[in-house]
Simulated assay, not measured.
Amino acid sequence: MSYLFNLVAALLSLVGLAAVALAFMLASPLKRPPPLASIHEGAMKIDAVGSPELSRFQARDGTWLAYRLYAATNGARDRIAILAHGSSAQSVEMNTIAAALAAAGVTAVAMDVRGHGASGTRGDIAYLGQLDDDLADLLGELKKANPVERFLLIGHSSGGGFALRVAGEPLGEAFDKFVLLAPYLGYRAPTNRPAEGPGLWASPDIPRIVATLALGRFGMDWPQALPAIAFANAPVAKMDVTPVYTYRLLQNYTAPEDWKGAFGKAKGRVAVIAGAEDELMDALAYQRELPPLGVPVTILPGVDHMGVVWRPEAIKAIVAALNG
Rank of each mutant, 00 (worst) to 15 (best):
R165T: 14
A19Y: 07
R208C: 10
S55P: 08
V244T: 12
L300K: 01
L164M: 05
M1K: 13
L54T: 12
A274I: 01
D124G: 07
L135D: 08
T242C: 02
A76N: 13
G261H: 09
W222G: 04
G105Y: 09
L213R: 14
R32P: 08
I273C: 09
E169Y: 00
G62I: 09
M220I: 13
E196Y: 12
N233C: 03
L65A: 02
M25Y: 03
A48W: 12
V210K: 12
L300F: 03
G42N: 05
T298C: 06
A81E: 00
Y3A: 15
P35F: 00
G159I: 06
Q251W: 12
E196F: 12
A321D: 04
H156P: 05
A99T: 11
R60T: 11
R208K: 15
A98N: 01
P235Q: 05
F24I: 15
V20G: 08
D282I: 09
L185P: 03
L131V: 11
Y247R: 12
L131P: 00
A266E: 02
V295R: 07
G268V: 04
Q251S: 14
L250Q: 11
G129N: 09
G324R: 11
G199H: 10
D221N: 13
G86M: 00
A228Y: 05
A27I: 10
G140K: 10
D124M: 01
A274V: 14
N74H: 11
A23S: 14
P194I: 04
G86Q: 02
A43F: 10
A230C: 07
K316L: 11
R77I: 03
L131A: 00
W201L: 15
I318D: 08
E169V: 00
P34Q: 12
A23L: 15
V8I: 15
A182K: 05
S51I: 13
A234I: 07
S51Q: 15
A163L: 00
A202E: 02
G216K: 08
P170L: 05
G324I: 03
A81Y: 02
V15C: 14
I318R: 08
A136N: 12
A262Q: 04
V297F: 10
F178V: 05
A19D: 07
V49L: 15
D258M: 11
S2I: 15
Q58S: 14
L131D: 10
L131W: 07
R32N: 13
E277L: 00
A317C: 04
L249A: 00
V272Y: 06
S55D: 13
S88L: 09
G302N: 13
S51P: 02
E279Q: 14
A21Q: 11
F151M: 13
W259F: 03
A182T: 01
P223K: 06
D112E: 05
D278I: 00
G105K: 12
A285I: 06
S55R: 15
I206N: 00
L180C: 05
D124C: 02
R114K: 12
V109R: 09
L36K: 06
G186Y: 05
I315S: 04
F5D: 08
M306A: 12
E279A: 11
R269P: 06
Y187T: 15
Q251T: 12
E41N: 13
T298S: 10
Y245S: 04
L213C: 04
D78S: 14
D132R: 15
A71Q: 15
A48I: 14
G268P: 06
G324L: 09
A202V: 11
A283R: 08
E141L: 09
G123L: 00
L36F: 04
K260W: 05
T73A: 14
A110E: 03
